[in-house]
Simulated assay, not measured.
Amino acid sequence: MPHSDAASPATRALARAKVKHTLHAYEHDPANHHYGEEGAAQLGFSPEVMFKTLVVKLEGSGVRNPLAIGVVPVSGMLDLKAIASAMGAKKATMADPADAQRATGYIVGGISPLGTKKRLPTCIDSSALSHDTMLVSGGRRGLSVELAPADLIRITGATTASIAG
C-alpha cells in the first residue's frame, strides 16, 4: 500500500475504484521539463509504456466540453488532428497551462488522467492496448502509477484512438 505522503487525487481515485496498481516514485529534477522521458529513464521503463497526459482545447462541431485529455506514449507526440477527430471536434490545440491546471487540479508535469478536479473527456492512444500495464502520472511530478490499460479506460470513461504522431 502507498504511504500517506504518496496520496494524491489520482491515487485516492484508484483506491476508491479498488483498481490494482503500483506506485513508482523518483526524484524529479526541477530543471528537467521533459517529465515523461525523465520518469521513464529514472524508473527504467520503456518510453512506449510510459504515457503523458496532455490537456487540449477543442473547437467546433457541438463540442460540449472545450477541454479534453489526451494520453499518449512519452516516446511520441499528440496528433492534434487525430484527437480532434476522435473527440468529434473540428480542431484541437494545446490548452493554456493555467487552464489545464485549473480544470485538472494538477500542476503541469504532474497532470494525471485520474482524479481530475473536473471530469474531462479522455482519449487514450490505442497503443496502450498492446501492453499488459502502462504508466501515467500519479498526480505529482516524480510519481507514476502503473496499471492495466483496461482499468484506466474504465475509471476515466476514456475512449481509445490512434492519437499519437
Rank of each mutant, 00 (worst) to 15 (best):
D125L: 00
H21E: 10
L67K: 07
K90I: 00
M94P: 02
K20A: 12
M77S: 15
D96L: 04
V56I: 05
A158G: 08
K18Q: 15
L143E: 02
Y106T: 03
L80S: 01
D5K: 00
E146D: 09
A103V: 12
A95F: 09
E37Y: 00
L23S: 06
A17D: 03
P66D: 08
H3I: 10
G105E: 04
K20F: 09
T160G: 12
L147Q: 09
V19L: 10
L23R: 09
S112V: 05
A31L: 06
M50S: 03
T93W: 01
G138E: 12
Y106N: 04
G62F: 06
I107H: 13
V108P: 00
C123Y: 14
L58A: 02
I163M: 03
V19E: 04
D132N: 05
G62I: 14
A41P: 08
P47Q: 09
K81I: 06
L67W: 09
A31D: 14
L152T: 07
A86D: 08
L67F: 11
T93Q: 10
V49K: 10
A82C: 03
G105Y: 01
V63R: 11
F45A: 11
R119M: 09
P113L: 06
A82D: 03
Y106R: 08
A13E: 14
R140K: 13
G88W: 05
G36S: 04
P113Q: 07
L152S: 07
S85A: 12
A84P: 00
S8M: 01
T156Q: 05
G44T: 09
Q42D: 00
L58S: 08
K117M: 11
A103Q: 06
L129I: 02
G62L: 02
K81V: 06
I155L: 15
R140T: 08
I155D: 07
P9D: 07
A7T: 14
V74P: 10
R64V: 10
I153S: 06
I111N: 08
A86V: 14
A128M: 02
L80P: 12
V19A: 08
K91D: 02
L67Y: 14
A82G: 08
P47K: 11
A164W: 03
L147K: 09
A98Y: 01
A92W: 02
P97D: 15
L43F: 06
A100M: 05
V19P: 11
G70C: 12
A164C: 04
I124R: 07
V74I: 12
K118F: 05
D132C: 07
S46W: 00
T104E: 01
T93S: 13
G142Q: 05
G109M: 11
V71I: 10
G76R: 15
T11L: 14
I107Q: 14
G70D: 06
E37N: 05
L78R: 06
P73N: 11
V74N: 11
D79G: 13
K52Q: 02
I83E: 01
L54M: 14
R140D: 05
H3V: 13
R12K: 13
P2K: 12
G115Q: 02
G36Y: 02
G76I: 00
I163K: 07
V71F: 08
Y26N: 11
A158Q: 03
S61I: 04
A15N: 15
T160S: 07
V108Y: 01
L152V: 09
P30W: 04
